[in-house]
Design a protein around this nucleic acid. Structure first.
Ligand SMILES: [Mn+2]
Ligand SMILES: [Mn+2]
Ligand SMILES: [Zn+2]
Ligand SMILES: [Zn+2]
Lengths: 140, 140
DNA sequence: AAAAGATTTTGACATTGTCCAAATCACCGG
DNA sequence: CCGGTGATTTGGACAATGTCAAAATCTTTT
């Protein structure tokens, strides 16, 4: 995996400490929320504004360097792995998010039978359930 | 379709004007948000508190009378059609949401190849794209 | 018709984001 | 290496969507 700074330069984005730290954190901790990323970055950098975290995540997402996913009942999550059209397993209890390979190959990996005239560009699949840890916890 | 009041009684829920109106509105206008439902109910009832709309939607959802869906970049939406495991086509531009039959039969209609020990109870599929109307609008 | 329990309301509060203007920084050219 | 310039970062206000809790009101049941 290339260094964050190189990736930024490659996309002609000015290299700033905040961008390097946010991108590194996203790589280090897949599926983290903006807040979790901010925490991680503060360990590295000492501080970063909430707004900058959002700014950086947005520009990286727009450039296609990272991907944003937004499962129900959770803040948006971000990840490094782009372009491989994988899907997610999400725990209803703790929100733990796990990558899962696409059953088919490329996007869109499913075709709606009757697409009602929509021009579909992505089929998003989220498998909901309980992660192994939460299955063991007392149910109520 | 049975009258809202009957459905409520059938589930042993006290029948109130607010519940009847909210449930009717959800039936009448599939995939509406809580705010849109509130507007609709106010036409019927004159007024309803924001909190009651949420209370009613929550109890109806918990009883399985309606279903809540939460596409990215949109408030939660509600619908009548439960238990048929259908999916959705969502317009990236205007949020218009269209039902689409499940490619397979029952839930979970897809099986993750490697499910990483998760106990999966639902495979949620959202097809993203542009609705016919938004395809015609000038792109920018 | 009254009692008991559930629902509705009101108003405060939480979370997750976005908007804007001022301060600061990164990069380029000399 | 030093400014200048345009982009980025910050801080603070604000917006959207929900949730919490207590008091008032309604439904159901005797
Ligand atoms: Mn992933
Ligand atoms: Mn639907
Ligand atoms: Zn879990
Ligand atoms: Zn549209």
């Amino acid at each position: 995996m290339r260094a964050a700074a190189d990736i930024l330069r490659q996309h002609r984005l000015p290299v700033t400490a905040q961008r390097v730290a946010v991108l590194s954190e996203v790589s280090r901790r897949p599926h983290a929320t903006a807040d979790e990323i901010a925490e991680g970055v503060r360990v590295e950098l000492g501080s970063i504004s909430r707004q900058s975290v959002y700014n950086v995540l947005t520009v990286l997402t727009d450039k296609g360097i990272i991907r944003r996913i937004q499962p129900a009942d959770s803040a948006a999550r971000y990840e490094d792995r782009v372009g491989d059209n994988h899907h997610h397993l999400v725990c209803r209890a703790c929100g733990h998010t796990q990558d899962v390979c696409c059953a088919k190959g490329h996007a869109p990996c499913l075709t709606a039978h009757d697409h009602h005239g929509f021009a579909i560009d992505e089929a998003e699949v989220i498998y909901w359930g309980l992660c192994p840890a939460c299955q063991r916890k007392p149910k109520r």
